[in-house]
Write a protein that binds this DNA or RNA. Structure first.
Length: 183
DNA sequence: CGCGGGATTGACT
DNA sequence: GTCAATCCCGCGT
């Protein structure tokens, strides 16, 4: 697999919905215990701005969500339901809270290649991603980063739908801010 | 300082 | 379809 080029900061400075769509087909890389695992991103969700009632940042900056207010390209990781970790990548400018949640991947490479991980908690468990990586700079990190690799199925049709698990968000729950591809 | 709930998952009826 | 697991954190007192 000859794709060592990381996605640049400009990629994450773009509008969050665009980043969420463009992350589909890109490669999430996790290096753990000297081993690199590559995962093709197949499902994402956008959480955007201070008014998005589905977002953790809809009220104000707090110790938990402060990463979302920081610079683009950092990992925002939190524990949900006391059981599972969710991985997000921060987008747009500083002080504007926005991020893309990685909801699904397909494992690449010979080991577990082809394995489907549909669900934000499943992929973090498989890739051993927890809160120790919260705030990680994905442009510099040796443990977690994103690569631009042109897989042949890259241009698969992008499906969209409402975000999962945000029924409490009123009108914001109706936004079609979930994106996914079939690989 | 206590209380309630969550950007989920898997097991079970 | 229902429901429990499990704990951090945001918010109100």
């Amino acid at each position: 697999m000859n794709c060592k080029n990381r996605l640049p900061k400009e990629f994450f400075m773009q509008p969050t919905l665009k980043v969420a769509k463009n992350l589909l087909g890109k490669i999430l890389v996790r290096r753990d215990a000297g081993e690199e695992i590559r995962a093709i991103i197949t499902e994402t969700e956008a959480y955007r701005g201070p008014n998005d009632k589905a977002s953790h940042a809809s009220r104000r900056i707090t110790p938990r969500n402060k990463i979302m207010f920081g610079p683009a390209g950092h990992a925002y990781i939190y524990l949900i339901y006391g059981l599972h970790y969710c991985l997000n990548i921060v987008t747009e400018r500083e002080n504007y809270p926005a991020a893309v949640l990685i909801r699904g991947v397909k494992i690449a490479g010979p080991a577990a290649g082809g394995k489907i991980l549909n669900g934000p908690g499943k992929l973090t468990k498989f890739l051993n991603i927890d809160k120790s990586l919260n705030g990680e700079n994905i442009f510099k990190s040796h443990n977690l980063w994103l690569e631009n690799c042109h897989y042949q199925n890259h241009r698969a049709y992008v499906n969209k739908g409402t975000r999962i698990g945000v029924d409490y968000a009123g009108e914001w729950a109706k936004k079609q801010w979930r994106f996914f591809i079939d690989l």
